[in-house]
């Protein structure tokens, strides 16, 4: 087992870093994609609300792996069109395609998390904002969003951890994340213990994230 790890340490480290980067990037970008969707879901009864609901339903309903296949392999069908609009550099790259799929997927889940916590904000807060004559933007950016974010932090952390493990699907579209490296090393050694090492990496990464999240939650002392 040790030689499988220490002998291939450079590759394991590369995989670990890529997994951490891809999951973190997708969760962070996904958060900003999710914000307007959550706002539309929570506050809009018109067309924006319907569009937001449509987005959430589609991207929660399609399995992440299928989404990755559709974006990575599916875009190949439209390579000429994508070239002509100057987007081929993006869609020919498995890393970008994988990241896009991850973002689209996590944004749908995060939008629902944030919508949920926006909806739990008491009407008394909205009345206070009105009485203080806050503009709609200030009210959202300075009051509703921070309160909603603090309430949403535990489920958002949960989503982050889920995304770390979901990135393992990237290996199937030729990305060398942890799972990709593990498959590579396995194909050279045919030693199944490779996957124990991969599992241990994921576990350590998740425990690290949990520890960070606990500290962040503790820092939000005004929640008490």
């Amino acid at each position: 087992m040790f030689e499988l790890y220490f002998g291939e340490m450079a590759r394991w480290n590369d995989g670990l870093i890529l997994t951490a980067v891809m999951s973190t990037l997708s969760v962070v970008i996904g958060f900003f994609v999710a914000l307007p969707i959550a706002l539309a879901r929570s506050k809009s009864k018109g067309i924006p609300g319907w569009l937001a609901l449509g987005y959430v339903n589609v991207f929660r309903g399609v399995p992440l792996l299928v989404l990755m296949f559709l974006i990575y392999y599916g875009s190949g069908q439209f390579s000429r069109e994508l070239r002509s609009i100057g987007l081929w550099w993006f869609f020919r790259d498995a890393y970008y395609c994988g990241l896009l799929a991850l973002v689209l997927n996590t944004a749908a889940y995060q939008a629902e998390i944030i919508r949920g916590s926006l909806d739990t904000i008491a009407t008394s807060v909205l009345e206070t904002n009105a009485a203080l004559n806050l503009t709609r933007w200030t009210s959202f950016r300075r009051v509703l969003l921070p309160i909603a974010f603090a309430k949403a932090l535990p489920p958002l952390g949960n989503e982050y951890i889920l995304m770390v493990k979901a990135t393992s699907l990237l290996a199937i579209i030729t990305v060398f994340d942890l799972m990709g490296q593990a498959r590579m090393i396995f194909s050279e050694t045919f030693d199944l213990r490779v996957y124990y090492i991969a599992a241990a990496h994921y576990l350590v990464l998740v425990l690290l994230i949990e520890w960070v999240l606990r500290r962040v939650e503790a820092r939000i002392k005004w929640m008490a």
Partner: peptide
């Protein structure tokens, strides 16, 4: 109920 903003 005062309605102070809890995060400020």
């Amino acid at each position: 109920h005062f309605n102070l903003f809890p995060h400020l």
